[in-house]
């Protein structure tokens, strides 16, 4: 590519340098109002959670027993909990974990589900074994499975990666491998129908290899259910994380997460409703923003809608 000259005005489409299609995707994403608001909310939340503790430096586990069960004050903008721990600090610390766990576990589950669904739907001889494998995972009782995982892997992972990273890996993997099945079944169902469509037939008739077929032709067409799964998956992961900590599989008990803050606060629903509202709102906002970003991403990736 040579440098553009003044003689060839960019406004002439014929002279414009070939543009990466991802720019189009981004453009389309930016025109999607919901997606934009979703993205901004999400970025603000992530920034608050990551940078907030630098500004608001109270230790989330510090107990100030004289200040327990306080409403919003200047010293504690979101009030304090039953031990006098600062709720704002706990919300920020909890958000870091919940967003990290929710996102990573959702991505893992999405990756597994999409991969298995694509393979099972596309390759006839993989369909049977992979779907029976899915049936097995659907049938396994969750609680004993998690308990076995803790028993077998917690100490090994802690020793290998240190206690916190070890627990993080364990939680993400536990949530990921117990929640991919729905995505897999949905993707497979769609692929079964897609691969009989004309455009797939056309692509196949010109000798497109399977890998390219799947990645270029099939995958983009199953993006919308995958996006819905992503949204539902992140909500699921945040809540499951709190359930895990009750089994002793999660982070240490004084370590706050949104799911846990919400669960602990339910008993205080009548006395201190704000304690339930904050974590509930945070989880809902995260899920909503992911939902709208997913909407925008889906629209942006769809060439039929793009440019409309």
């Amino acid at each position: 590519m040579t440098e553009p000259t003044a003689a060839a005005p960019l406004s002439d489409p014929a002279n414009r340098p070939p543009r990466n299609q991802w720019w189009d995707v981004l453009d389309q994403f930016r025109t999607h109002r919901g997606a934009l608001i979703g993205a901004i909310v999400f970025i603000v939340m992530v920034a608050t959670v990551l940078l907030g503790p630098w500004v608001w430096s109270i230790d989330p586990t510090y107990i100030d027993i004289r200040a327990r069960n306080q409403g919003p004050t200047f010293a504690h903008p979101l009030g304090t909990d039953q031990l006098g721990r600062d709720m704002l600090a706990r919300m920020m610390a909890g958000g870091k974990v919940s967003i990290a766990v929710g996102f990573t576990a959702m991505l893992l589950s999405l990756f597994l589900g999409t991969l298995i669904g694509l393979l099972a739907g596309y390759f006839k001889n993989l369909d049977g074994p992979l779907m029976r494998f899915t049936d097995l995972f659907l049938a396994l009782p969750l609680l004993p499975l998690l308990l076995v995982m803790v028993m077998l892997f917690r100490e090994a992972l802690s020793a290998r990666f240190g206690p916190e990273t070890g627990v993080f890996i364990l939680i993400v993997v536990a949530i990921g491998i117990t929640s991919w099945m729905q995505t897999a079944r949905i993707v497979r169902g769609d692929v079964l129908a897609l691969k009989e469509r004309e455009f797939v037939l056309a692509a196949r008739s010109i000798g497109t290899p399977s890998r390219r077929m799947i990645l270029r032709h099939i995958l983009p067409n199953v993006m919308s259910p995958v996006m819905v799964s992503a949204t539902l998956g992140i909500a699921n992961a945040i809540i499951t994380e709190s359930a895990l900590s009750f089994l002793g599989l999660g982070f240490p008990p004084d370590f706050p997460t949104w799911g846990r803050l919400l669960f602990d606060a339910v008993d205080y629903l009548q006395q201190y409703p704000s304690r339930v509202i904050w974590p509930g709102l945070a989880i809902s906002l995260t899920v909503l923003s992911v939902n709208y970003m997913g909407d925008g991403l889906r629209d942006a990736l769809d060439p039929r809608i793009r440019g409309r």
């Binding site: 586990t61 107990i63 009750f246 089994l247 002793g248 008990p253 004084d254 008993d267």
Partner: peptide, 13 residues
């Protein structure tokens, strides 16, 4: 796992 025990743990810690 028990809410009261976890509060006690946090205090003692």
């Amino acid at each position: 796992t028990n809410a009261v025990r976890q509060d006690t743990q946090a205090l003692v810690k």
